[in-house]
């Protein structure tokens, strides 16, 4: 399948615990830096189509027995801005039914800066991760 490679940002401009919203073929995609790892989700809640990736990034309450709970997975959960359905950003799986209710995910890579951006008149430095680009890979929809 053909894949579009969409540059989202430079690594240095995309710090941990932030997000970027990009639009690809009219579809909004949320790209998240969760504790240094990049993930991308389709910004459309499987419930009623809300712009999921504009929701709050939070943790959630977990429990092993009634009346006891603790806060966990801080910064790893996106909560839909409409009805509050929670999804794990890294997998797109919902918290309430991870096997059946999930949101579309996309591969994200960090790649070296493209060569045409290099200017021979500027002194060269070793390429660092910070100079790299965060790229989301979006399959081209069959029309």
């Amino acid at each position: 399948m053909d894949t579009r490679h969409v540059v989202v940002a430079r690594v240095r401009d995309f710090p941990a615990n932030t997000r970027r919203l990009v639009e690809v073929d009219g579809q909004e995609i949320g790209v998240f830096n969760v504790k240094g790892e990049y993930y991308a989700l389709r910004s459309s809640c499987p419930h009623q189509g809300a712009p999921l990736c504009r929701g709050r990034v939070l943790g959630t309450n977990v429990s092993t027995k009634p009346y006891q709970m603790e806060y966990a997975h801080e910064g790893e959960i996106i909560k839909c801005p409409w009805h509050g359905w929670e999804f794990e950003i890294s997998s797109g799986r919902s918290i309430f039914n991870p096997h059946k209710v999930r949101v579309r995910t996309y591969d994200v890579t960090v790649e070296p800066p493209e060569e045409e951006e290099e200017d021979p008149s500027i002194p060269m430095y070793p390429v660092t991760i910070e100079a790299g680009q965060v790229v989301v890979h979006v399959p081209v929809q069959q029309r």
């Binding site: 009805h83 509050g84 929670e86 919902s94 918290i95 309430f96």
Partner: peptide, 15 residues
């Protein structure tokens, strides 16, 4: 409602 509010009573782990 539980899908949306699950977080408030997380010990309820099935519908």
């Amino acid at each position: 409602d539980w899908k949306a509010l699950r977080n408030q009573t997380p010990w309820v782990q099935k519908p």
